[in-house]
Design a protein around this nucleic acid. Structure first.
Length: 881
RNA sequence: GCCCGAGUGGCGGAAUUGGUAUACGCGCACGACUUAAAAUCGUGUCCCGUCAGGGAUGUGGGUUCGACUCCCACCUCGGGCACCA
């Protein structure tokens, strides 16, 4: 071959490597293991991004170096294929997501293979493969069985026009991405994972791993551990709050008068025809609890309660059978009443009829408990969270979370000095931080100050005191709080893992789908549109939803929510180790491989995943570790991140901007090796950088010059002479060291620049030995695997360059090396001397003093001090008069 | 507002962690080869100055024999969190 032609080289070597199974890993190898991991891509319709190439090349370089160092290296690849874009594409086109995914992964695989990455493709995984998500579901059930998965009401983004719940990323400026309608918040019952139970460990155990400080900081900020003190403040109420308008002294007005009138009609009707149980209970409370005035069928808010004692704020409800079917609305009603400060107790009809005495006793008990409260609200104290308890003497008000700023009419007593502090509701106080209540110290805290000034509250003039002392004085309790919230694990979508639970009405209970029935497979459907009450599209597949209760065998229904796409990626590093098990449908975890390969030794990925994905998968790993399913507390020993690649103009690459660089195009025109070398050379690996096609040309030229140099080395006859000469070259040794060190630190740009320096120098030699050329090729091989293997064979080698050991620094025969010594006078460079290495200060001073330039500068002045750095510098400090 | 990170030629960026600032690459200029162009190769390329020398690493101070590197204050840009008590 006359000139470097990447098209003839690259495909051919890729085939050879695949045939010889160069990258297939032996789980039972005696060699030291090395698990190299990169984030598996989401196979979108856009194809591989040059940003993927950056991260994958980097780990490929590391993996190839480790293999050459004698490690058994696992470097796997797969597809994180569940997610919204595919579902949206399915909605638009009507094509099944399964088909879209298949197309996209086929394309991605081809693209990645064309780049010559040393992935072990025999372990390829796909999160949307039912065999894969059988495990994801099974793992979820382990969480569920340990009480780490629970249902809770959570506000979701709701588009009232499209009638669907939206993911956060589908809400742009508070509006629906598709139709532009303003998004509302709606409460919806969702499955949650109790990640906050692991908050402390997720924070503390960061000490065990080798992540850059910036990533640890980001994770810690996200977890938001904060140590503070909870202090109880007694509430007093010298004057009742202003009476709400309405029915009477203790009335509570409904939201609008019309509703109230309608309710009033209903009340009359209900009073006229009470149920038997209601009637019995009414007699009982009137006769036996005469100390307390009860009312029947009373309107509070938009609800009609059965019995109420307004003075003590006690509500008694009598439930008929119908209540079994309206648990949710009953709960809503209870929540509302409790918010208003009422205590609610419920009795079943049968109980009232069967044992009225017991019911009355229970009501009495509740009343007595309430009478201890001094308050209007039935609450006698309020808990305040603070990280600065020592400022308590400065507190002038108390603020709890509210939608508008207003005085509640209540007062609290400062436990430190018994001062009376007004209780306010304030917008700036957040309901879910600490206890949702703060003490206002309008001096040290600027928001407290601003709030106090605005509402004319008094400002601080009290001294501060010692911290621990004050906690004792006021009876405070040290508590640790976290910013981290539990993980909303439900999605009302089709394209995700179905949550494998069944609800039985009769048992009134959620049950796990039995292991033998896993996976709960996604049914094939025609419409991917969510239902208009916000349920997943799965909810409309009647035959799929209908199930048998695993406990009682009665009729039951499946959960129709699916998991978020973080689920499959939370354990994929484990899945690679069990890819055989996944294929054979064996539900058991294969612990041998896990013990052998975990933890991941080096995990590289994008900076955008340093909080959520990393945190979630660390959480899963810890839970699985507690269940003895995986070894070790942490999944990833070392984490690095690569910077974004931006478009040439510095903008984000996107289809809509039309500035996407297609790797296929680069591979065709310049070759995979050029692309790889360029991406490693373009700039510091961890920083964002703009694409620049001019830079690509430099990398291509570099490879062409390597090609030419090998051709000329082959032609020259005086090989033996050249061999001796170049093997002693200090530059060659320097380069071996530099490339090796730089790869370890991911300073790929300088690794390549040092190879360029060596090449420049070799080109100037009259002859370069084959042996030197081989060292050079080996150092370059992780970056440009195709070209180097080709040239390696041209130099007479029979086996692949990728099987050859990593180059070591060579012991030089001649220890006398020339070094350049800088001569300074008062810190300024005045001359440079080229001398033998390891000269002493005395020898060097003698030499330097004889230099004409030095003589001129010293010129009779006395030397005050000499600074000597061996093999580098000598500095004379002279009097400057 | 808080927490990370970064400011060096026309451009991407080096600098052994306090010791020759501008390596390497791109671009540009000139030269060689060519009928010519491309490609390739060679030489040059921070600023002022003919030289000697002087000045430059966002700005202003400081420490040091010596500062891109350490300290203080400020400015600009990128990323993350955002009323976090």
């Amino acid at each position: 071959m006359k000139s470097y032609n990447h098209r003839q080289i690259e495909g051919r070597w890729q085939k050879v490597w695949a045939q010889k199974k160069l990258n297939c890993v032996n789980d039972r190898s005696r060699k030291k293991k090395f698990y190299a991991l990169v984030e598996f891509p989401y196979p979108s319709g856009e194809g591989v991004h040059v940003g993927h190439v950056r991260g994958y090349t980097a780990m490929d370089v590391v993996a190839r170096k480790r293999r050459a160092e004698g490690y058994e290296v696992l470097y796997p690849m797969g597809w994180d294929a569940f997610g919204l874009p595919t579902e949206n594409y399915a909605l638009k086109t009507g094509l099944p997501p399964q088909l879209i995914t298949k197309r996209n992964t086929t394309r991605y695989r081809k693209q990645l293979q064309s780049l010559g990455f040393s992935f072990d493709w025999s372990r390829e995984i796909n999160t949307t493969d039912p065999n894969y998500y059988r495990f994801t579901q099974w793992l979820f059930l382990q969480f569920f069985k340990r009480g780490l998965a629970y249902k809770a009401k959570v506000p979701i983004n709701w588009c009232p026009k499209d009638k669907i719940g939206l993911a956060n990323e589908e809400v742009i400026d508070g509006k629906c991405e598709r139709c532009g309608t303003v998004v509302e918040m709606r409460d919806k019952e969702q499955w949650m994972l109790a990640i906050t139970k692991y908050a402390d460990r997720l924070d503390r155990e960061l000490d065990l791993v080798d992540y850059p400080e910036s990533i640890k900081t980001q994770q810690r900020n996200w977890i938001g551990r904060s140590e503070g003190v909870e202090i109880g403040f007694k509430i007093i109420n010298p004057t009742p709050p202003p009476l709400p308008e309405g029915e009477g002294e203790f009335g509570y007005q409904t939201t609008d008068p019309k509703t109230w009138l309608v309710l009033q009609e209903k009340v009359k009707e209900m009073r006229q025809s009470p149920t038997r149980a209601e009637d019995l209970l009414w007699q009982a409370v009137r006769n036996n609890l005469s100390g307390c005035h009860f009312r029947r069928q009373h309107i509070i808010g938009k609800f009609i309660v059965d019995f109420v004692c307004l003075e003590k704020k006690l509500v008694v409800e009598v439930d008929g059978d119908i209540h079994d079917f309206q648990k949710e609305s009953d709960q809503e009603r209870t929540n509302f009443l409790e918010q208003k400060g009422f205590k609610v107790i419920r009795f079943k009809n049968e109980k009232v009829i069967g044992n009225g005495v017991l019911v009355v006793a229970e009501i009495n008990e509740a009343l007595e408990a309430l009478s201890f409260g001094e308050g209007w609200g039935g609450v006698d104290s309020i808990k305040v969270f603070t990280t600065r308890p020592e400022t308590i003497f400065g507190a002038t008000f108390i603020a709890r979370h509210g939608k508008t700023d207003r005085f509640t009419g209540e007062y609290a007593i400062n436990p430190a000095n018994q001062e009376k502090l007004p209780i306010w509701e304030a917008e700036y106080v957040m309901g879910d931080v600490g206890t949702g209540v703060i003490m206002g110290v309008p001096a040290h805290d600027e928001r407290d100050l601003a709030f106090a000034k605005k509402h004319n509250l008094s400002l601080v003039d009290k001294p501060l005191v010692d911290k621990d002392e004050i906690i004792k004085l006021v009876g405070g309790k040290k508590v640790t709080t976290y910013k981290l919230r539990d993980w909303v694990f439900s999605r009302q979508r089709y394209w995700g893992e179905p949550i494998p639970l069944i609800y039985c009405q009769k048992c009134n209970e959620w049950w796990s789908v039995p292991d033998k029935d896993l996976p709960v497979e996604l049914p094939k459907i025609k419409k991917y549109q969510p239902t208009d009450n916000g349920e997943s599209p799965l909810a409309s597949v009647g035959s799929w939803v209908k199930a048998k209760c695993p406990k009682c065998g009665g009729p039951a229904r499946r959960e129709t929510d699916t998991m978020p796409n973080w689920a499959g990626s939370s354990w994929y590093y484990i899945a690679y180790l069990m890819s055989e098990k996944i294929k054979t449908k064996n539900l058991k975890f294969s612990t041998f491989n896990l013990k052998h390969w975990l933890p991941v030794d080096w995990y590289n990925g994008g900076t955008e995943h340093t909080t959520l994905h990393l945190l979630y998968s660390r959480f899963w790993h810890k839970v699985l570790n507690d269940l003895k399913l995986v070894p070790g507390k942490e999944p990833y020993q070392k984490r690095t991140s690569h910077g974004f690649i931006l478009a040439q103009n510095g903008e984000k690459m996107s289809k809509s901007r039309g500035n996407v660089v297609n790797p296929d195009d680069i591979v065709r025109r310049f070759g995979a090796d050029t692309l790889r070398v360029y991406e490693m050379f373009m700039g510091p690996f961890d920083q964002a950088i703009s694409w620049n096609e001019d830079g690509l040309i430099g990398s291509r030229r570099f490879l062409e010059r390597v090609w030419k140099l090998v051709q000329s080395a082959k032609r020259k006859t005086c090989l033996t002479v050249g061999q001796a000469k170049n093997f002693e070259s200090p530059l060659l040794n320097q380069t071996i060291k530099k490339v090796g060190d730089d790869i370890e630190q991911m300073k790929f740009n300088t690794a390549i620049s040092s190879l360029m320096i060596l090449l420049n120098s070799l080109e100037k030699e009259s002859a370069v030995s084959i042996a030197t050329m081989k060292v050079f090729l080996k150092l370059l091989s992780p970056f440009a695997p195709h070209l180097t293997d080709e040239l390696w064979h041209e130099l007479g080698e029979k086996k692949s360059i990728h099987l050859a050991p990593w180059s070591r620094e060579l012991k030089t025969q001649n220890s006398k090396i020339k070094v350049r010594i800088v001569i300074q006078i008062n810190g300024k460079v005045r001359d440079i001397l080229e001398v033998e290495n390891d000269l002493s200060e005395k020898e060097l001073t003698g030499l330097a003093m004889n230099q004409p330039k030095v003589k001129i500068w010293i010129n009779g002045k006395s030397i005050q001090k000499t600074i000597f750095i061996p093999n580098r510098l000598i500095n004379f400090v002279v009097d400057n008069n």
